[in-house]
């Protein structure tokens, strides 16, 4: 089979079977790397680093990167569209079903259980983000090293600022923080 089509097929499969967000695509990409040798595990590591340090969903960034490395811009577009195609199809079908069953007491009951659970999952994800951003987790136990004081100070400053200006757009907050990060060598 044509390598371009084969690549698209592999990404379609990844989109179809990677359940639970962007990071779930990584094991699939590792498998593709080992099966076809289209890119090495070291390149994959670089791709993960770049995907995490650029905006956008990580899974989409990764597929674009792999596609670009293989076939340039057409590859980037082909890989990414193949990755998202299964979810667009599946979600449109679910959205249609959901519209017809939204008022059924069974569906309502299920969602009454799901909503507070989702808040719990998100809190768990947030705590990991906090630990990574505000503390030096690797220095746990060494109390002079453990706290990332610059980051904690910035956190308190921005939190106060967000209460003072509650209408502030998230994009503005991100831009301010990025500038402070560069200026103060965070």
């Amino acid at each position: 089979m044509n390598t371009f089509l084969l690549m698209c097929l592999e990404f379609f499969k990844t989109g179809l079977f990677a359940v639970g967000g962007g990071l779930a695509t990584i094991p699939f990409l590792k498998e593709i790397a080992m099966k076809y040798g289209w890119f090495t595990i070291e390149t994959l590591t670089t791709m993960i680093a770049v995907s995490e340090s650029t905006p956008g969903p990580i899974g989409v960034n990764m597929s674009t990167y792999v596609g670009y490395t293989m076939f340039g811009i057409p590859g980037a577009i082909g890989a990414t569209l193949s990755l998202v195609a299964p979810s667009v199809i599946i979600i449109c079908a679910i959205a249609k079903l959901l519209k017809s069953f939204k008022d059924s007491p069974i569906v309502q009951g299920i969602f009454n259980g799901l909503r507070p659970a989702v808040v719990g999952f998100i809190l768990s994800a947030i705590i990991s983000i906090y630990l990574n951003s505000l503390f030096h987790v690797e220095a746990y136990g060494n109390w002079t090293q453990f706290f990332n004081w610059k980051a904690i100070l910035l956190f308190c400053g921005l939190l106060g600022f967000s209460y003072w200006k509650p209408k502030l757009h998230p994009i503005v907050m991100i831009a301010i923080a990025a500038t402070i990060g560069i200026v103060f060598q965070l």
Binding site: S133, L134, L154, F155, S162, A177, A178, T179, G181
Partner: peptide
């Protein structure tokens, strides 16, 4: 450096 700053902003926004 920019990313470190952005991470902190994400913490505040997520809060």
């Amino acid at each position: 450096h920019a990313l470190k700053g952005i991470q902190v902003a994400v913490c505040v926004l997520m809060f």
